[in-house]
Structure formats: C-alpha cells, structure tokens
Amino acid sequence: MELIIVLVIALVVLGPKRLPDAGKSLGRGIREFKGSLSGDTKDDDEREERELAAIQPVAVAEPVAEPERVA
C-alpha cells in the first residue's frame, strides 16, 4: 500500500512524461552504488572498452585540389 502511495505522489510531482526518465536515473544510480559497494570494477572497465570501441573515428576524405584558373 505504501508503495502505491509513493508512486502516485511521484506521478503527481514529476508528471507522466518525466517519470520514466526519473526511474531510469534512479535504477542507474542504484546499480552504480551496488557496484561500488561490491568493488566490482571489471564490469565498469569492460563497459568503458565497449563504449570506446563503438566510437570509431570517421574516415576523412583527402581534400580535392581546386582547378587552376586561367587568366
């Protein structure tokens, strides 16, 4: 019963559009807190490596020489 009351108050305060984002942020915070308590940094390192691997440099084309102007 108490959980329903808390959820209704959160819905009234945050509104239906911001409530899912607040839930995601809360879940992410709890996950990080649990990870810091357990001292499990391997997951964090692997996640960072995956994120860095996903960001790959964009290939840049060589500049094209401008045609010579005839005066």
Rank of each mutant, 00 (worst) to 15 (best):
M1F: 08
E2C: 03
L3H: 09
V6C: 02
V8Q: 04
V8M: 09
A10P: 03
A10L: 15
L11W: 13
V12E: 09
V12M: 14
V12T: 14
V13L: 15
G15A: 13
G15L: 10
P16N: 10
P16G: 03
R18C: 00
L19D: 01
P20R: 06
D21R: 08
A22L: 02
G23D: 01
G27T: 10
R28T: 07
R28G: 01
G29Y: 07
G29L: 13
R31C: 00
R31G: 04
R31M: 10
F33L: 11
F33H: 07
G35H: 05
S36F: 11
S36M: 11
L37W: 03
L37V: 01
D40L: 02
D40K: 13
T41A: 07
T41S: 03
K42G: 15
D43I: 11
D44C: 01
E46N: 06
R47C: 00
R47Q: 04
E48Y: 09
E49I: 10
E49T: 05
E51G: 00
A54Q: 09
I55W: 12
P57L: 14
P57F: 12
P57Q: 15
V58R: 15
V58N: 05
V60H: 07
E62T: 13
V64E: 10
V64P: 01
A65P: 14
P67K: 04
A71K: 07
